[in-house]
Amino acid sequence: MGPRTITTSRRMASNRIFLYGCFAATSIAILVLCVLMISIAVEGWSSVSWRFLDSFASRKAAQAGIKAPLMGSIWVCAICGLVAIPMGIGTAIYLEEFAKRSRVKRLIQLNISNLSGVPSIVYGILALAAFVRCFGLNTGDAPWSLGNPESLLFIQFPCGPSVLAGGLTLALVILPIMIIASQEAFRSVPQSLRQGALALGSTPWQVVWRVSLPAALPTIMTGSILAMSRAVGEAAPLLVIGGFLLVFQTPTNLMSDFTVLPLQIFNWAGRPQADFHKLAAAAIIVQLIALLVFNSIAIIIRQKLQRPLQS
């Protein structure tokens, strides 16, 4: 007689233990998320008020608010989005729709995935040299300026630690993410759609503009929102370029000083007094609400707009 089979009950036991283990891991992850949200809500909820949103920073915890960082975050992220999203999509279009398979393309691809792994603080150092100081090209006393200081689009070189520099810095950080997300969107467009358009006599750009881009757009939008939510939360690179921790005005043009919510949270969280921890928690609540809104929009877009392109 051949050897016996291992008792099934023992294999079933290991099967069950494994399931419980995996389930426990998942539960812990969700539990952590809940604890995080609840502990912050408990700590900060009492400090969230209209006055909190509408006041500037202060040495007295009772009078401090987040008007400047809130407006700063909006300005910086708007600039970041305006720069990074079109550039990311453009690069993705070139790589997915135009570039031939070649060594060069492979290297560029590798380079982009490497860039997405570069710590954000290192981007801060690049931005400090490139935008804030413009590589020291302007050695004169006064910065070169462009436009009227009263106008919205007033620009100086070097930019200094301004809203513009901050937005461009964040654009550097999220550009690789944006490119990779858009590339995936283009890759998921079935080749048959492109061939159909080409067979009707479309030029390559017409194929992109009328077929690939519309088909890829929902995915690109989801990717953009997720990339932007990363930008909203970034603090390290802005800290390096000298985003001010105490600002008592809201930005008025591209050259205004600024601070952003995560920097303000960092400032308050780093202080020993419990009162300021409460303020930090309140600011985090504002930040997380914004984040949840972002994420919900992404989920809605994904579910409503993503029709299947092939049966």
């Binding site: 051949g2 050897p3 016996r4 089979t5 291992i6 294999r11």
Partner: peptide, 10 residues
């Protein structure tokens, strides 16, 4: 290997 339906050397 799953079912151990063999003696090891087999």
């Amino acid at each position: 290997r799953l079912h151990r339906v063999y003696a090891r050397t087999d």
